[in-house]
Design a protein around this nucleic acid. Structure first.
Lengths: 243, 243
DNA sequence: GCCCGGTTCCAACAAAAGTTAAGGACGCCG
DNA sequence: CGGCGTCCTTAACTTTTGTTGGAACCGGGC
């Protein structure tokens, strides 16, 4: 994938979540980006590392996670093409969590230096990126609620609905199915439950005819039931720049 | 409390988490701030509301929370004097969660308009505030891990140690005790457990001689055991501006 | 085609957490 | 100073989730 396609994905994303002017687009199109391929299940930036670049997903699925002393891992967010999962490293230089790929991925890297200069030059773009990191934080808040207050089946439903919502925006959730390339182990890590329990919950949703989940792909069987179970209110995604 | 004292608290805080220049201090000291008193247990900004100001805690404890359809509430963060708990509203205009007081509080309000102008004028201050919102997000990430992966006693210990760490920075955690003005109900809401279970966990920590908790005040009985249980690594607080 | 490793799936049992219910402590207000 | 409400406390019981261990399935590499 040429770096032009990556820029296009970013612009598309920013167009949705923030207001973007033609001048901004030109600035972004002039950004030097280094493209690299990563295999599946590979760390991109490690916890404790000092990042010098921000990473833009051109293709593939990534997750952010933290591992505690006991060895347990918590997945904090799932990322899809067009997103910049480690924009925060721009001002929080040493990573407090890990970014890794789920599937084979194409990532674009933009140096912190370049971005910092860009911000000084165009405060509008800085604000757009700032807003992006704030939406990130809003998603963390909802993730806390999910893990803290909802029963396990609702947690899974919520993650599915959120992911589908975001995939729709980039045109990757047509019909009633979409990709969610996590193993049951990883689903457990995302929901704060064990893999065994994740399996139970998946089976339950299948038996109740709500969703089918196999080989990293979700098929929605009963839209109504899914939405009711997920208790989903997309306001926290802040998809309209005017709100 | 005069608004000068509030400004001083803010400057003190920014001095710790970011590099702040003398010019920045002057700018902040010139900021128009409206001071208001709030009783305990009172909403300051409600979920779904459109905020026009950012709120600075001069005195008192506040929390941010989200309530789901079933009526369950999740506390997302605890805030102490010197912090700006709703800085995010600057770019995420409609609130996706609630900010409310725990104790009677003195809050200072700065209008979004004022802040936006300030950012355009001094990008350095903008970056400082941006960094502040990023630390906020880092704390959410750790909160996810706490609620998702740690057993209940460790969750409580972790929240206590984090709060103490932050209180130390503003000189409000001398000796082996500090304020944590949450009811057991609220502790449950913070940890993602019920009030009854929160009580069990508190009793357990008391019986094991780790901490005593009464009337909103924590007394540490066994520092070693507490730290071990909490599994605390303060890196996520990003306290040094150089890191 | 067949083996191998990782997933998925499942059951039985153990532990953690939720629910319900009720008594006691404490502070506030009349 | 007494009553009332909130919070804390505890017990008994239920439900959810974790643990252990094992079998079936699947895909890729030899």
């Amino acid at each position: 994938m040429p770096s032009d396609a990556i820029r296009a994905a970013l612009v598309k994303r920013l167009r949705i979540s923030s207001g973007i002017t033609d001048d901004d687009v030109k600035e972004i199109e002039a950004l030097p980006i280094v493209v690299r391929q990563f295999p599946a299940e590979t760390p991109v930036v490690r916890d404790g590392e000092r990042a010098t670049d921000c990473c833009l997903i051109a293709d593939g699925f990534c997750v952010r996670s933290k591992t505690i002393a006991s060895g347990k891992r918590q997945i904090l967010s799932i990322h899809i093409p067009g997103e910049i999962p480690d924009l925060m490293s721009l001002f929080l230089h040493v990573m407090d969590h890990e970014l890794s790929t789920l599937t084979p991925s194409t990532l674009g890297f933009i140096s912190h230096e370049t971005l910092q200069k860009l911000h000084r030059r165009s405060p509008g773009i800085a604000e757009m990126f700032w807003r992006d990191t704030l939406i990130d934080a809003a998603m963390f808040r909802e993730w806390i609620v999910n893990v803290g207050q909802r029963p396990a089946p609702a947690r899974l439903a919520h993650v599915m609905v959120e992911l589908r919502e975001r995939l729709k925006l980039i045109g990757r959730a047509e019909g009633n199915s979409f990709d969610m390339p996590l193993t049951q182990e990883q689903i457990g890590e995302a929901l704060g439950i064990t893999a065994v329990h994740a399996n139970r919950v998946i089976r339950q949703l299948r038996q109740e005819g709500i969703v089918e989940l196999q080989r990293g792909r979700v098929t929605v069987l009963d839209e109504r039931k899914l939405l009711e179970l997920a208790d989903f209110d997309g306001r926290y995604l802040h998809q309209s720049p005017m709100l």
